[in-house]
């Protein structure tokens, strides 16, 4: 008994949740420190792969001069607009096809066909139609956001438990009340997951759109770093993308999680 109790006690420090997360940091932090040491010791040049200190210095410089915030703001505005339009359209069309079978039979096949097109393939057409400025970029992002949201919402509505809908019928809810009091809460968790996926794709497409031609934005910073041969700027822009994407995701989760706190599985998948 005593021995059995002692073993888990000795292992306990490794079992802390914080400890587990720290284990995941060992590899990237170790590699970064190793690379830093190698460049400082002169074993490696660090021209194409800049050491962390140079990347951070570049990032700091960009932030101090205000340049970084211009680019962050530009990218963020595009994602916000594209995500707003794409998510709204995805929710509306998904709600329509999910609740009205004739509408689904009419437009779902076309949407599925459109979905098979890689979104980047639209770029030349969007540029012809909407010009090279904001409109074409926002359209591309909106298209990228639309499909996962549409699929998620339509699937969630199709999957609503008929048995719960019958509870609403027994209490003679009107169509509107049924939608508000049963359908809406039932599809909410899946919708939130779909929105999160959409937001992730929004960031993917803002990077693509800005790489294809922009005068500001984090994607532009990437391209600028490539053309000027500044890998530290590229890595700095990548880090900024990662931080921004993570932050927006956290905000979305933070804003929407209270709506789905009744569901165990929603909490896990969010």
């Amino acid at each position: 008994m005593a021995a059995a109790a002692a073993v888990p006690a000795a292992r306990r420090p490794l079992r802390l949740p914080g400890g587990r997360m720290l284990v995941g940091l060992v590899l990237p932090v170790g590699l970064a420190l190793g690379w830093e040491a190698a460049v400082r010791a002169g074993w490696a040049q660090g021209r194409l792969v800049p050491p962390p200190s140079r990347v951070l210095a570049t990032l700091w410089g960009l932030a101090a001069s205000g340049e970084l915030w211009t680019h962050v703001l530009a990218s963020l505005t595009r994602v916000a607009a594209g995500f707003g339009f794409g998510a709204l359209a995805g929710i509306l069309v998904g709600a329509l096809t999910g609740t009205l079978p004739p509408v689904r039979r009419l437009i779902d096949p076309s949407l599925q066909a459109l979905r098979a097109i890689p979104s980047i393939a639209w770029v030349p057409l969007f540029i012809l139609w909407f010009g090279i400025f904001e409109a074409s970029k926002i359209t591309l992002i909106a298209v990228g956001v639309f499909f996962p949201v549409y699929l998620g919402v339509a699937g969630a509505i199709a999957g609503v438990d008929r048995k719960l809908v019958e509870v609403g019928r027994v209490f003679r809810l009107s169509r509107l009340a049924l939608a508000r009091r049963i359908l809406l809460p039932a599809v909410l968790p899946a919708t939130l997951v779909a929105l999160r996926t959409g937001l992730g794709l929004g960031f993917m497409f803002v990077a693509a759109a800005e790489l294809l031609g922009a005068s500001e934005g984090l994607g532009y910073l990437l391209l600028d770093g490539q053309q000027l041969g500044k890998p530290d700027q590229i890595v700095a822009a990548i880090l900024a993308f990662a931080a921004l994407g993570k932050l927006c995701d956290a905000v979305l989760v933070g804003l929407t999680q209270p709506l789905a706190r009744w569901q165990d599985t929603a909490r896990e998948s969010l």
Binding site: E166, L188, Q263
Partner: peptide, 19 residues
Amino acid sequence: GPHPGVGIVFQEPRLLPWL
């Protein structure tokens, strides 16, 4: 159709999990 004077308890509880 569903009538205000008739109530039913199903074989499963059918509670709304978000309430």
